[in-house]
């Protein structure tokens, strides 16, 4: 956790990053207590892994084997049939075109919502942190409160507004709502990061150029690499994993992958194909899991920084 400097600046992360001074450890002889601790931790780790294991093996089984009931057994025959089914022909509501529809919808939602939310909040955070703007204090306080507001209280008005803007029920509606809802938290994260830029650098830039945008693009943006990546990961995972906004604003045409998945697993008519369900769940989980396993540290930084998103 030594390199968690970026989220130092981020809201709510204060407690998460006071990294301890590094002390080189001496080689210890394994004591009885150490063994007990490791055994306990391993059992816990097992508990954390079991659902993933079950989901994975189930997704490779045939329905015949699943009906035998041995949940923890490995597949007799490893088959990709369920994966194929989940991707290409699983039903979500009345449409049976598989999760690929939702996948591409999710991708299509992700890109504009990332651009909108990060673009909006980085500029706002920059202006609030580094420029002398009126009402900065009250505005920050309101943003702080907005970050905690439950979605339900603004849900109907947002539906009405998006409907009148003719974006309700499309990927654009979902993307815009994501950007709006993420704005307070991301602004606070950026603002806290920029607050630590030395005042003299801003003074120098103001004397050298004086242009709000030129200073942003030439000086500040190049200094934001760390926080941008952290925010990017936070935003990708939270948009990808979202269900509520997708189901509310996606209508028929803009449903993200999670909505497809939820429709699939909550279906109660006909025979339930559990292997399809699990394959679909895995398909939905793979993108964020890949991010997690490759850049876990940054993911944790983002999640602690954006903790108030809950």
């Amino acid at each position: 956790m030594n390199d968690m400097t970026a989220s130092h600046k981020a809201l709510g992360a204060e407690i998460a990053v006071r990294s301890a001074p590094y002390f080189p450890r001496k080689k210890k002889v394994i004591t009885g207590r150490s063994i007990a601790v490791i055994v306990f931790l391993s059992i816990c780790a097992l508990f954390f892994c079991v659902p993933l294991y079950v989901v994975i093996v189930t997704s490779f089984k045939t329905m015949d084997q699943i009906r035998e009931g041995a949940m923890f057994a490995l597949p007799n025959v490893w088959t990709l049939e369920a994966w194929d089914h989940a991707w290409n022909s699983a039903c979500s509501g009345t449409r049976c075109e598989g999760l690929k529809v939702g996948f591409w919808n999710s991708v299509a939602i992700l890109i504009p919502s990332l651009i909108l939310s990060i673009g909006l909040s980085i500029v706002t955070g920059y202006a609030l942190a580094l420029w002398n703007v009126k009402w900065a204090g009250p505005f920050l306080f309101i943003l702080f409160i907005c970050a905690f507001v439950p979605f339900q209280i603004i849900m109907f008005p947002l539906i009405s507004m998006t409907a009148s803007l003719k974006v309700y029920g499309s990927i654009w509606g979902v993307a815009i709502i994501h950007a709006i809802l993420a704005m307070p938290v991301l602004t606070l994260i950026f603002r806290n990061y920029y607050k630590d830029i030395p005042q003299e650098i801003m003074s120098a830039a103001v004397m050298d150029s004086g242009s709000f945008w030129k200073i942003f693009f030439e000086i500040i943006l190049p200094m934001s690499g760390n926080i941008l990546i952290v925010v990017l990961i936070l935003q990708i995972t939270s948009v990808w994993n979202d269900y509520l906004i997708g189901v509310t604003f996606g209508g028929m045409g803009g449903q993200p992958m999670t909505v497809n998945l939820a429709n699939l697993i909550t279906i109660s008519t006909g025979t339930v194909r559990y292997n399809d369900n699990m394959a679909a769940a895995l398909l939905t989980a793979i993108p964020p899991l890949v991010i997690y396993f490759f850049v876990g540290k940054l993911f944790v930084q983002g999640i602690t920084a954006g903790a108030i998103k809950g």
Binding site: E200, I201, S203, A204, A205, M207, D208, S209
Partner: peptide
């Protein structure tokens, strides 16, 4: 029409020395 030298130098960390001098002329 003035120029200032700061206590902490306030150099732009992401720019080279050349870039720092050049940004001084950006206005």
């Amino acid at each position: 029409g003035l120029a200032m030298v700061f206590q902490s130098y306030a150099l732009y960390p992401t720019k080279t020395v050349h870039g720092n001098l050049k940004f001084g002329l950006s206005a």
